[in-house]
Nucleic acid binder design. Structure first.
Lengths: 214, 214
DNA sequence: GATCTGAATATGTCTATACATAATTACAAA
DNA sequence: TTTGTAATTATGTATAGACATATTCAGATC
C-alpha cells in the first residue's frame, strides 16, 4: 500500500505510461482508488489533480477522469531577467543605456546588455509613465529597466512572443552582427488591470537559443 | 470574510501587488491568516501553495512564507503538436513524407507539414527503433511521426530549444523561402528512462512566432 | 568561541466527514 | 419526438484534528 500523494501520483503515472490505463480511457473514480491504494480520497484527489495540471489526465465532474488523448505536457520557462540569464551562463552582466526620451506620456528607451563585455541583447522599450510614474526618476545606469519593472511593476497579464527576424540596422550596429543575420527576437507586452505598462523588443546576439524545460 | 481558497488567493495576491506585503517580506503564518480571514488553515495552505507554484511566494518550513524578490511568473507553452497548431489557426492540416530510411537501428525521417497547402514546417527526425519498434510499421502517410510518437511513446524527460537560424538547403527547398532566410528552428530530444527515443529538427516557414502565455 | 543538542515552530501532509457543483441519466409531461 | 425535471454520481472544496518534517534558535558543553 502506498502512502503519500506523491506515491499515488507515481503509481498513477506508471499506469498511464504502461497503458494499463490507455489514452482516452476512463480510470477508476477517486473513492475506488482510495480503497484500492489504502488512503483517503483527498489524497487520491491531490495526486490526480496534480497529474491533470501537468496534462496527463482530464477531469470532469460527474463524467470522471480519463487519460489525456495527447498527453501534452506543458513546457515551462521563466520570464527572462537578463541579468540572471547571463549570470546563469557564468558570465558577468552589465548594461548600458543607449538613448532615453519622453514623448507623449511614454518613456522611450534603447539599451544594450552585455555578457562579459560582449553584446548579449539589444533592447527597445516603451514604458507607460501614467502607469509607473516613478520610472521617470529611476537611474537606469544603476538598474536595468527590465529589472526595475519586474520588481516594481507587478502586472496581471501579458504576451510574450519569440520570432526569428533578420537583424535590423539597430541590431546590426549594436550587436556587432552581419546585416540581416538571423536573430532571435523577443517581443513582450505587459498590462496592468487598466492599461499597457510596457512593451519591449529584445533582439539577442546571434546564436542565442531559448531552452525550455519539460 | 472570504470563502473559497481562490478568494484567499485573490486576497493574498492583492496584498502582494499592492505591496502591503512587500517583496522579500515575511507574511503572516497560515494559522494567523486562517484566523484573520475566517477559514481553515488547509484552505490558506491551498491558496498560498498555488501562489508559490506560480512564483509569487517562497515558502520554507519553520522559516515561513515570504514574497518572492523577483516575482518571476512562469510562462507556459504546451509541447506543440503541429496538427493542433495549424488547426488552431483555422487552417487545414496535412503532411507528406519526404524520405524514410533505416540505418543502424535508427529510423531517419524527413517530412513536410502544410497549413492550407502552404508549407508550414519542415521536419528532420531520428527515431530509436529499439525504444519504439512498432514505429517501423506505422503508416506515416496516415499519421505524422510527431503525432504517433506523442500518443504512443510517452517520455520521461526531454529538451526543447528554439533558435533563429538561416534557412538550410533543405529548408529553402521545401519551405519555399529565400536561401539563408531567418527561420525559427525547434530542436527537441526526448528520452525514456533508459535511452533517447527521438530527436527532431523542425524548421518553420518564415514569419512563424512562438507565443507563450503568462 | 566553536560545536553539539534538544526545544520550538511553520509548513507539509493525511484523515474522515460533510456539503457544493457540474454533468449525465432516467423519467415524466407536452 | 421533444422538452423539462428530478435523481444520481464523480469531482471540487471546506473543515478540524493529528502527526511529520525541516529549520531555526537557545542553551549546554567542549
Amino acid at each position: 500500500m502506498k502512502r503519500g500523494w506523491q506515491d499515488i501520483q507515481t503509481e498513477a503515472l506508471r499506469r498511464i505510461q504502461s497503458r494499463e490505463w490507455p489514452p482516452g480511457g476512463l480510470i477508476p473514480n477517486e473513492a475506488e482508488l482510495a480503497r484500492e491504494l489504502g488512503c483517503a480520497r483527498a489524497t487520491v484527489n491531490r495526486a490526480l489533480r496534480a497529474l491533470a495540471e501537468d496534462g496527463w489526465l482530464e477531469r470532469r465532474r460527474r463524467a470522471g477522469t480519463r487519460v489525456a488523448l495527447s498527453p501534452q505536457r506543458r513546457a515551462q520557462m521563466s520570464v527572462p531577467i537578463l541579468r540572471q540569464e547571463v549570470e546563469g551562463l557564468g558570465k558577468a552582466y552589465s548594461h548600458r543605456v543607449i538613448s532615453r526620451k519622453i514623448k507623449g506620456g511614454l518613456l522611450h528607451l534603447e539599451g544594450l546588455h552585455f555578457a562579459d563585455k560582449a553584446p548579449f541583447a539589444a533592447e527597445q522599450r516603451q514604458v507607460n509613465l501614467s502607469e509607473v510614474p516613478q520610472m521617470a526618476d529611476v537611474d537606469l545606469d544603476q538598474i536595468s529597466a527590465n529589472e526595475w519593472l519586474v520588481q516594481n511593476a507587478p502586472f496581471d497579464r501579458g504576451t510574450l512572443e519569440y520570432a526569428a527576424e533578420p537583424a535590423s540596422g539597430f541590431d546590426t550596429k549594436h550587436l556587432e552582427c552581419a546585416p540581416a543575420a538571423p536573430l532571435m527576437v523577443l517581443r513582450r507586452e505587459t498590462f496592468s488591470e487598466t492599461a499597457m505598462v510596457t512593451a519591449v523588443r529584445m533582439s539577442y546576439a546571434p546564436g542565442h537559443a531559448v531552452r525550455l524545460v519539460i
